[in-house]
Computed example of a mutant assay.
Amino acid sequence: MSLTRRRLFSLIAGLAAAAGLSAFWASRMRNYEGPVSDHFDGRHFFDPDGSPPKSLGELLRWQFGPDRQRQPWPEWVPSPYADTPPPRVTGDKVRLAFVGHASWLVQTSGMNILIDPVWSDRVSPFTFAGPKRHNAPGIAFDALPRIDTVLVSHGHYDHLDVATLSRLNTKFSPRVITPLGNDATMRSADGAIRAEAFDWHHRIELGNGVAVTLVPTRHWSARGLFDRNRSLWASFVLETPAGQIYIVCDSGYGDGKHFRRAAEAHGPLRLAILPIGAYEPRWFMRDQHMNPSDAVKALADCGAAQALANHHGTFQLTDEAIDAPVTALGEALEAAKIPRERFVVLKPGQVVEI
């Protein structure tokens, strides 16, 4: 059997399994029910300033088109860093540890906050297939301090990892703040998860003067084939003693208005965490994932004093090489005449303090 036929067979088998899994979850889950709004039609969420997700036909064209150029990743690319966080960080300092992909530990004002925590080996509905890790989490799970709050941006498997959320709940029982509808996904997997779901623009007090606001972002959501956009997606603005931190876990760029609006509503921003990976091929990924050039424009739009990169280098979700986002980010910063120290790339386990 040729490589292309094997890939096609594998994808069809995966889609069939996903369809069965989707039907199973659909039978168990309560879908979000709420009033119609400017981004919810009574059944599906949508971005009035965005684009709908690509169709199944377009997915097949990407996977099996004659022009596809998927770059191979090394099997394992370990980070030279591993963080052991302190129990708490007090005062007006913020400590940010990069766990990998879009996962962060933020410590400030005596609060420990995890962003999109993923400690699983794969980001997939299956334990035996799907994108797998190419490096270990930058913090060992057993080295985590007591977690108070978890922020989950949306329902894609590389951001909402129910296995990790269950482990966190068993060990720490944290609050889990997420956009509307994702609480149903969590509770369908583990009814003990303390999920709280909120709409765009909702501000939630986390304690000790720390608060978070969910803000619109240019993306979409699904767990299977039959629940597309049945849950909401968001970015976060975290209010800390050191200033506002704009956390974008996954987003396309569009015309940049999402980033400008975040600055207008929540600026000045001390720090922005911006995605730079999972962007090739552009015809397929442009509307949902920024490339490094887009990320540099997003930094200019939001006006943050400093930026950190995420959403790269851990799971191969798309076609670019593992080191392509970092190289391209340097080139984009040089072209925009922005110092490289203003937009920093960390390896898992590295730490920044502000």
Rank of each mutant, 00 (worst) to 15 (best):
N31C: 12
P131D: 10
R261N: 14
G252C: 09
V89H: 09
W73S: 07
D67S: 14
V345F: 01
T240Y: 05
L238Q: 05
T178S: 08
Y279N: 02
T4G: 09
D294A: 06
D161V: 03
N310K: 00
A309P: 07
T178W: 01
S55H: 01
G191N: 14
I322S: 01
R88Y: 03
V351L: 02
Q71F: 11
S235R: 07
G181D: 04
W283R: 12
G91Y: 00
F315C: 07
N135V: 05
L225D: 09
M290R: 00
W283E: 04
Q63G: 09
L329I: 09
M1I: 12
A140L: 00
M111R: 13
Y279D: 00
Y32F: 15
L214Y: 04
N291R: 01
G20N: 02
D294G: 10
F284Y: 15
H219M: 09
G267T: 07
M1G: 13
G209H: 00
A222G: 05
P339K: 10
G349N: 12
L206Y: 04
T127S: 15
L346P: 10
T4R: 15
P85D: 01
S22L: 02
G209R: 07
E196I: 05
V351S: 05
I113D: 03
V351G: 02
E239S: 13
G65I: 12
G349M: 02
K347A: 15
Q244I: 02
G50L: 11
R7K: 15
L214K: 10
T213I: 05
K257V: 11
M111V: 10
T164K: 06
A234Y: 02
T164Q: 05
D92P: 04
V296L: 05
S55W: 06
G313A: 07
Q107T: 11
I193A: 05
P85G: 08
A197L: 03
P216L: 11
N208F: 03
T318D: 13
D255C: 09
A309D: 04
A304N: 08
W25Q: 15
